[in-house]
Design a binder for these strands. Structure first.
Length: 563
RNA sequence: GGCAACGUAGCUCAGCGGCAGAGCGGGCGCUUCAUAAGCGCUAGGUCACAGGUUCGAAUCCUGUCGUUGCCA
């Protein structure tokens, strides 16, 4: 009996390239999970898309003097290239700028409105008389009433870190033209989230498999009492409120972005699957939706979106798990786009192997706490663990068969010790499966690396390079055993290292795609001809990599740094 | 300011009531099939700090300091 597993992944703002933080935080764990479940024979639907409507996009558009849509189109295209290069295996990566997404987001609004869950309220909104437009909080600068810092923004003061209301600012001015904003009273819709606090707490009761930090945070948040929130904003970029006389208001970007998980599923069903109803299998009572996000997004995925699903009705499936990751730091500091303190995916892919990055980020994934990426560590892990332990086990075995057995899989049966090792290999497959299914990706990779080490140890103990001289049969038994271990490793590592696992699949003389080969350690048959082996991974030149990357880091930074 | 999490070996991280662990790096040795790769042995720690609970605390509780996220 196979499960229907929806893999819903955070929607990146289309206002800049992807960096390592995005990958380690959400996209890599989601992809490992998706590939694993496909190999196990489950029905996977993995979706996400570009968030087109966030403030960061309009900010960048105004800075460059182009339209928000142009910014969105440029970076959405870049995302697609990054996914391709990194092997992130979407069923659909769409965008919030589709007609389909507008329709479904407006349908949610209409449903909520008709159910009486949206009510009007008046609030004071900053308005620029010179620009003849309403201003988001971030578009207002002024003096902080708490610390006197002059560059405080309408939402937060960078001087003292306090969050602000734009009306508190002393001497407020628009960042667009420096003009003084006035505050106008505007009607907006509030969503009755407060009605769902108890139901959410009830729903959380059997979520003991969630990560403690996610569950504790969510429970604590709800126990303080869930408040109603403004559902609409005064913007001209975004999805219009579908009510007569309200067309100049937009649905708040966060509330339509989470609807994207559903609208992307619907789009996949009609446009890719060719069966408009096919999405229901992943949203019905027995579906298991997993949401892969970073820790800054927990509230929206464990509270707001489940509340919206409850409010919508139709028994749409609530999250099975929200394995939010913590953050990845870089060389001791937080990632920062403005200071160019980041490793950008397109630049990485221009110089290095995608599997090497997937390996290093998986080995050090921020599952339980913030973790650290450094280039020296990247080089060490690639050269010593990926190349030295795993790649070399494969290479020494395959070149040995090529050299001493004419590239033909020997016809021999493992002896007692070999049979024991192969049993360990089978056990490792199940052990890793349990770890991955529970979203413990670091641990799953650890199982694979331990098995590779066992393989190396076995080779050293049985020394086929000595046996080949006096007892060819013994050497053959050893090699067949290790071939079985390598076959298991190729499967075990396929979710983590899809490109090299496919190459290894072919080097073992096996046909087709590894993703269709199942979760088994089945290797080549006796007598099978193996192609000339190639190294799975290249060693890195430490000096060269460090020279290039350390020079890149922070380059182009025009602000003062204290580091 | 409130809530939540984190602080463990030189580095990156596990462990989360019962003799302080792994990988990498360091030291010593073995091996030569292999991308100078592999294997074994070894050194190293007041488990942030101060109290408390317990026969027993890195682990549970309280407080302090530091880091992070969310909220005000």
């Amino acid at each position: 009996m196979s499960d229907n597993i929806l893999i819903a992944v955070a929607w990146p703002y289309a206002n800049g390239d992807l960096h390592l933080g995005h990958i380690a935080g959400a996209y890599l764990p989601a992809d490992i999970f998706a590939r694993f479940h496909r190999m196990r024979g489950n029905n996977v639907l993995m979706v996400s898309g570009s968030d087109a409507h966030g403030t960061p996009i309009t900010l960048r558009a105004e800075a460059e003097g182009v339209s928000p849509r142009e910014i969105h189109d440029r970076f959405h295209k870049g995302f697609l290239e990054s996914w391709e290069g990194l092997g992130i295996s979407w069923d659909l990566f769409t965008t919030t700028e589709t007609e389909n997404h507008y329709r479904i987001s407006q349908d949610f609004f209409t449903r909520f409105y008709e159910k009486g869950l949206l009510y009007e309220t008046a609030s004071e909104v900053p308005y620029s008389p010179t620009g003849k437009r309403y201003l988001p909080d971030r578009y207002i600068n002024g003096t902080c009433p708490h610390c006197g810092f002059d560059g405080a923004r309408g939402d937060q003061c960078d001087g003292c870190g306090r969050t602000l209301d734009p009306r508190e600012l002393i001497n407020p001015r628009s960042t667009l033209d420096g003009g003084t904003p006035e505050f106008r009273t505007r009607s907006h819709f509030m969503m009755k989230f407060s009605e769902y606090g108890d139901s959410l707490l009830e729903w959380l009761k059997d979520k003991n498999h969630w990560r403690p930090q996610v569950l504790n945070f969510t429970t604590g948040f709800l126990e303080q009492g869930l408040k109603d929130r403004a559902y609409t904003r005064d913007l001209d970029w975004g999805i219009p409120v579908p009510l007569d006389g309200w067309e100049d208001r937009r649905i708040y970007v966060w509330f339509e972005a989470v609807i994207g998980y559903l609208s992307a599923s619907v789009e996949w069903a009609s446009d890719i699957k060719g069966d408009p109803e096919a999405w229901r299998a992943w949203w019905g009572a027995d579906a298991k939706p997993y949401y892969f996000i970073g820790k800054d997004n927990i509230t929206f995925h464990t509270i707001i979106w489940p509340a919206m699903l409850m409010a919508y009705g139709d028994d749409l499936a609530l999250p099975e798990d929200v394995p939010a990751n913590e953050f990845l730091n870089l060389e001791g500091y937080q990632l920062s786009t403005s200071r160019n303190w980041a490793v950008w995916v397109p630049e990485y892919l221009a110089n290095y192997d995608p599997d090497a990055l997937r390996f290093v980020l998986s080995a050090n994934m921020p599952e339980t706490s913030d973790s650290e990426f450094t280039w020296p560590d990247y080089i060490r892990r690639v050269n010593n663990e990926l190349v030295g332990t795993y790649g070399n086990l494969v290479h020494r075995t395959l070149t040995f068969i090529q050299r001493f057995f004419d590239g033909t899989v020997p016809d021999a049966k493992p002896d007692e010790a070999g049979t024991r090792l192969l049993a360990k290999g089978d056990a490792a497959l199940e052990e890793a499966a349990a770890e991955i299914a529970a979203c413990r990706f670091r641990a799953g990779l650890g199982v694979a690396m331990s098995l590779a080490q066992e393989g190396n140890r076995y080779l050293d103990e049985h020394a086929p390079w000595r046996a080949i001289r006096e007892d060819r049969e013994d050497a053959a038994r050893t090699l067949v055993t290790i071939l079985g271990i390598i076959s298991g490793l190729k499967t075990l590592l396929a979710p983590y290292l899809p490109f090299s696992s496919q190459r290894l699949h072919e080097m073992l003389g096996l046909e087709g795609g590894i993703q269709d080969a199942g979760w088994t350690a089945t290797g080549p048959e006796a007598g099978a001809r193996l192609p000339q082996p190639q190294a799975l991974f290249a060693k890195l030149d430490e000096e060269q990599v460090l020279a290039r990357e350390m020079a890149n880091l922070g380059a182009g930074d025009e602000s003062e740094t204290t580091a």
